[in-house]
């Protein structure tokens, strides 16, 4: 039953991942803009979190906040980016290249996902058209005719 539920909710889960990836992309793009203007990560983070409120920084240490996100974020695939960001932040290395790299990687993943969606959608649409439109169309056209012939 659990497998069936997972199977039925697969589409919804995929869309949730895409939506979260899109929000993360907007978040990192915004963060990058603030870093480009010379603001530090904590200020830029607070402003960028308006795009993605679930990442809002609540005033404790940003490093521990990054660590928390890297272990608790809903989608495991996205946690590694925050681990990388946390390690870079703790080391004191420049953050902008890392943020840009994360942003570009997320964008590439999103575009790849969109390409696959565009590739598969025509065949899925054809199956749905065959399943949901062809039988009732044939029934609507032929059943009255066959009924009239039978009489």
């Amino acid at each position: 039953m659990e497998d069936l539920r997972v199977f039925l909710n697969r589409g919804r889960e995929i869309r949730r991942v895409r939506s979260l990836r899109r929000k993360l992309l907007n978040f990192f793009d915004t963060l990058d803009l603030y870093l480009a203007c010379g603001y530090d990560l904590s200020f830029g983070w607070k402003e960028a979190a308006r795009v993605m409120p679930m990442l809002t920084f609540t005033g404790e240490s940003l490093a521990s906040h990054l660590g928390q996100i890297s272990t608790e974020l809903a989608i495991p695939d996205f946690r590694r980016w925050f681990s990388v960001l946390e390690a870079t932040y703790r080391s004191g290395a420049p953050l902008r290249p890392v943020v840009r790299a994360i942003s570009e990687s997320l964008r590439r993943d999103q575009i790849r996902d969109l390409d696959e969606h565009c590739r598969l959608l025509p065949s899925r649409a054809n199956i749905l058209l065959l399943l949901f439109f062809l039988p009732p169309a044939l029934a609507l056209v032929f059943v009255p005719l066959l009924g009239a012939l039978a009489h």
Binding site: G11, R15, R18, L114, H117, L121, R124, A125, L128, L129, L131, F132, F133
Partner: peptide, 11 residues
């Protein structure tokens, strides 16, 4: 079918 098709086309 229309509802299902529209849902399937969502990205």
């Amino acid at each position: 079918g229309v509802a299902r098709l529209w849902k399937t086309s969502e990205f």
